[in-house]
């Protein structure tokens, strides 16, 4: 367990990041806007690794992007705040946001294999945030880059920093991107499916690396993924999103040993396991709703095997056990 966990239990200090009541909408020309994220609240404590999981259309990626002001055209934050070190990220001007990006909140992007510029050497790119934010002399930056590459376990870092991205394997490219995210020693790193494009054995290495870095530097991570297994092995606390809402949240053990929301339970039964698979996987009937589909009451109601009359009323996200919230009347 990280130091962060004890700090949280103490409940004294304010969280590093606290998002409250976030609503993101896609604007349309003639029709009403489509909600992408509805009333999303989450927090990340100092030194904590927090998982945000969901399937496509759950709104997890847009939630993460909104924090860095990286939402695509026509998608906007229309309500809520994101307090980070006593500032509201959503209220920052573009120049202020540029100061935050990379320096205070860094991003490890999804597609490691296309995130590095193929015509520039890796070292130069890893040092870029420092070049931009701190404006330190070249030799100093080069030394820093070597130390960073060493920290993400790239062998022979001095020589490798002069390599081009294609001379790096996929796992090493993702390590380099992680080094880049670390370069300004930001207190918070957003990792958007950082291992999805990588092979499973390399995926395991990156996960170990993130765990290491947290222990060494106390950096907090918000880890976005669709992979329950991955999140369960890495994160201290987990938020589960479905159709734009957080439907369940809690510490890892609570979520995985005692899931309260029928969606979380169904999702866990749907993933095949290495051993002891049932004859048939449990499935969720129907499909993930489009963001534009209005469903009165609980948004999972139409696919839920346990739905009953009161589910037509929207359930609040409420405490089901200590440190464990669920958005379900039955939890």
């Amino acid at each position: 367990m990280a130091e962060g966990a004890t700090a949280r239990d103490g409940g004294g200090a304010a969280p590093l990041l606290e998002v409250v009541g976030l609503r993101i909408e896609l604007e349309r020309r003639a029709e009403a806007p489509v909600p992408i994220a509805r009333d999303v609240s989450l927090r990340v404590e100092e030194g904590e690794i927090v998982g945000l999981i969901g399937e496509s259309g759950s709104g997890k990626t847009m939630t993460a992007k909104s924090l860095l002001g990286l939402l695509p055209e026509r998608i906007r934050v229309v309500a809520g705040r994101a307090m980070f070190r006593s500032r509201d990220l959503f209220a920052l001007t573009p120049p202020q946001m540029r100061e935050v990006r990379g320096a205070e909140i860094a991003l490890i992007p999804q597609d490691a294999l296309h995130a590095l510029n193929p015509v520039q050497v890796v070292g130069r790119q890893v040092g870029e945030p420092v070049e931009v934010h701190a404006r330190r002399p070249g030799p100093e930056i080069r030394e820093l880059v070597v130390r960073l590459l060493e920290r993400v376990h790239i062998p022979n870092p001095r020589a490798r920093s002069a390599d081009y991205p294609h001379q790096f394997s996929g796992g090493m490219q993702q390590r380099a991107l992680t080094a880049m995210a670390l370069s300004m020693e930001p207190p918070l790193i957003l990792a958007d499916e950082p291992t999805t494009a990588l092979d499973v054995t390399i995926q395991a290495e990156i996960i170990a690396l993130i765990r290491d870095l947290r222990a060494q530097t106390g950096t907090s991570f918000l880890f976005i993924s669709h992979d329950l297994g991955l999140v369960s092995s890495l994160c201290d606390r987990i938020y589960v999103m479905y159709a734009g809402e957080i439907v369940e949240s809690g510490v890892r053990e609570e979520i995985f040993d005692r899931p309260r929301h029928p969606y979380t339970r169904a999702l866990m039964g749907a993933a095949p396991r290495l051993l002891g698979n049932p004859e048939r996987l449990s499935t969720i009937p129907g499909r993930i709703p489009q963001p534009s589909e209005e469903i009165a009451g609980c948004r999972f109601r139409v696919r839920c095997p346990l739905a009953e009359a009161r589910c037509a009323e929207p359930p609040p996200l409420r405490e089901a056990a200590r440190g464990h919230d669920a958005r379900c009347w039955l939890a």
Binding site: E55, S56, D199, V200, H226, D227, L228, A266, L267, G269, A270, A271, P272, E279, R280, L281, S282, T283, I284, R287, I288
Partner: peptide
């Protein structure tokens, strides 16, 4: 997605029972 994968994998199993084909599955 995981939940969709479960539906498709179940479907392969059902169909294999009905159509009796052999199967070679390449995956990571």
């Amino acid at each position: 997605d995981v939940s969709v994968q479960a539906q498709v994998l179940n479907l392969f199993k059902d169909l294999q029972g009905r159509y009796a084909f052999s199967l070679m599955l390449v995956t990571h």
